[in-house]
């Protein structure tokens, strides 16, 4: 049976793992390759690296990081952050990344999704959507969740699927960093509407939150960062707990 996936996320800045609350106030969380290796050993099903380096210059170190990660771990991983062209994607896939995620650049130029999925296959194109509820409406935000757009989250999700996205990484900016639980309703809505997998992100703080998002939220995968970095939730323990309530996981 296909299992639900637990995905630790590593925010990377200038080659180091960092973690902030609501995308600001960053603290150092260690060497990304070491962390990746630790997570793979603990039973993570996949990894996501989001590069938040400020300059293009520093982003180029990302390709080297991807190579080091691919050499050290043998589970799938996705790389995102500042990707806006076929050549960006080719460099990362050639270095050993399994998938790439695009976010702001896809909002700015939706045709990029078609272009990338035609070139590399939809299985390796993840579209990341940062969503925030504004006056009762879920709206897509870009640039690390700071800039609101007029796109409604569900409508945008449908569009990116039609354009060839293979997966959606849905981050609720309202929940991110709060450890108060994932965005249940929004995730469920996307997951039930779309026929591609949805990764829920933002707000996971306890094992119960993961149970909730897989059962009630219908997520295919759940992503979190700091709770795994700082071992507030241990991946192996979490997966055992999920198994006990008959949520299919790889042990």
């Amino acid at each position: 049976m296909l299992t639900k996936r637990i995905i630790p996320c590593l925010d990377v800045k200038d080659g180091r793992t960092v973690k902030g609350v609501n995308f600001v106030d960053l603290r150092d969380a260690g060497d990304p390759v070491e962390l990746a290796d630790r997570y793979a050993k603990e039973g993570a099903d996949e990894l996501v690296f989001l590069d938040i380096s400020a300059t293009l210059e520093k982003r180029k170190t990302l390709v080297d990081l991807v190579k080091s990660v691919a050499e050290a771990v043998h589970i799938p991983f996705t790389v995102g952050g500042g990707i806006s062209s076929v050549s960006d994607v080719k460099a990362l896939l050639d270095a050993g990344a399994d998938k790439v995620s695009v976010n702001s650049s896809a909002v700015k130029n939706p045709g990029l999704i078609n272009e990338l999925s035609n070139e590399f296959g939809s299985q390796c194109i993840v579209v990341a959507i940062d969503s925030r509820n504004v006056d009762g409406v879920d709206l897509v935000h870009t640039h690390g969740g700071t800039k609101p757009t007029e796109l409604k989250t569900l409508e945008w999700a449908k569009e990116v699927e039609e354009r060839g996205a293979g997966e959606i990484l849905l981050t609720s900016m309202d929940h991110d960093g709060t450890k108060a639980g994932f965005a249940m309703e929004l995730t469920k809505q996307l997951s039930e509407t779309l026929s591609i997998p949805v990764i829920a992100s933002g707000g996971g703080g306890t094992e119960q939150h993961f149970k909730d998002i897989f059962v009630g939220g219908k997520a295919d995968a759940a992503l979190a960062a700091s709770i795994f970095h700082y071992k507030e939730v241990e991946i192996a323990h979490l997966k055992n707990e999920l198994k006990k309530v008959n949520i299919p996981v790889r042990l």
Partner: peptide, 15 residues
């Protein structure tokens, strides 16, 4: 052929 609750691609860990 995807069904209502089983998506395509088949993506992830399976036994």
């Amino acid at each position: 052929n995807p069904s209502s609750d089983m998506k395509v691609p088949h993506m992830g860990w399976n036994n």
